[in-house]
Design a protein around this nucleic acid. Structure first.
Lengths: 194, 194
DNA sequence: CGGGCCTTTGACTGGTTTCAACTTCTGTGG
DNA sequence: CCACAGAAGTTGAAACCAGTCAAAGGCCCG
């Protein structure tokens, strides 16, 4: 249990067995079914969820009822409504499962305990955040400077499993497009190769 | 010297005088004139720059020569090409000054020394990154779910100094619009109030 | 004071959205 | 295992909105 969680962590920072045991005490495993909510807009995000297995998405819903996906999370990723998690304010995002998934939950007070007791954990979090920061900068840059076709190709090359595991309309939502437009973008890409 | 730098830091984490002195040894002050480059695409980002005074921007240039602004930095913010800074790879962003500015530079090896010697500094960086993460998520969400008018209004309310201190065409670039389109968006907003 | 950059405005173009219809895929119950 | 309903994806036509190109006016800086 928690294999991937500790594998990821020990790849980035060194942890003794004791430290791992200490951290392990605070972790809560959770299985979640496809389409089930982990978090709903308006509730407080009590947990950050590490994905051991499966896939989730975080999204907002605008006043027209359209969903806008802010983040996907596959194996090895962490997902939450960071703002709600940090401040205790109601969440602005929904999080649900795209597949049956196995999660590792960590609540805020537990995380604060670990941060105090295991300095290496703070370093790990810093490295995780740095990676997340860079990938979001890249996402914004591609939104600003690439054509739709280039953006789709870049996205599928960066995360090939997206195309396999996520419905196309959700990829469209992640890119800020209608499903129809993404369908046409894909056709154009295909036609270029014929 | 370094007033704002330490003011920001000590608002978030507690530091002894000794620790502050220790950190101070690694800091390098730099003045930079309006329009001057701090970093050019292709060079390696050796420094992260904290802005004591002034304003800078980070931007990429696409193959048509169009600039795309990924970040502004005013007093109290930090700016760099994070990816280049972390990996030592050539930078993909340019950074230059929008006003005469006073910076505090910190290079990677110095930062690593501080991280090792001052645990509170690691916490500070983590909190900084968390804030940056949340504001970028918010930016992406507004790009996905708001109209142009709503996005402009939200942006100007969030950062009123933008409108005062930054040319409109750069705000357009930050929003992913042409200057003409932003001009028309502003007119529509104005007309609503008449 | 002059030149160049910035902003605005207009006309036109082109690309994305919208709406609707049709096809394909998927999962669920009979 | 098949049937069928609902969801997902594709395609077409029309509307809409942002981009492009061009020109004029304003303003800042040298």
């Amino acid at each position: 249990m928690y294999e991937l969680f500790f594998k990821n962590m020990t790849e980035k920072v060194k942890l003794t067995r004791d430290q791992q045991q200490m951290i392990r005490q605070y972790l809560v495993p959770k299985k979640i079914r496809k389409n089930q909510y982990l978090l709903q807009e308006g509730d407080v995000a009590k947990y950050a969820a590490f994905v051991e297995k499966g896939a989730l998405r975080a999204y907002s819903v605008d006043e027209k009822g359209t969903e806008h996906i802010i983040q996907f999370a596959f194996e090895g990723w962490t997902i939450s409504d960071m703002y709600s998690y940090m401040t205790g304010e109601p969440a602005t995002y929904n999080i649900d499962a795209l597949e049956d998934s196995e999660l590792v939950l960590l609540n805020k007070s537990a995380q604060e305990e670990i941060l105090q007791r295991v300095p290496e954990y703070e370093e790990y979090i810093r490295l995780q955040l740095t990676g997340a920061f860079m990938s979001m900068q890249k996402r914004i840059t591609s939104m600003l400077s690439l054509t739709l076709e280039e953006r789709y190709i870049q996205l599928t090359q960066l995360y090939p499993s997206l195309v396999q595991r996520v419905p196309q309309r959700m990829i469209a939502s992640y890119m800020g497009l209608t499903p129809e437009t993404l369908s046409r973008v894909r056709r154009k890409i295909k036609e270029r190769w014929e």
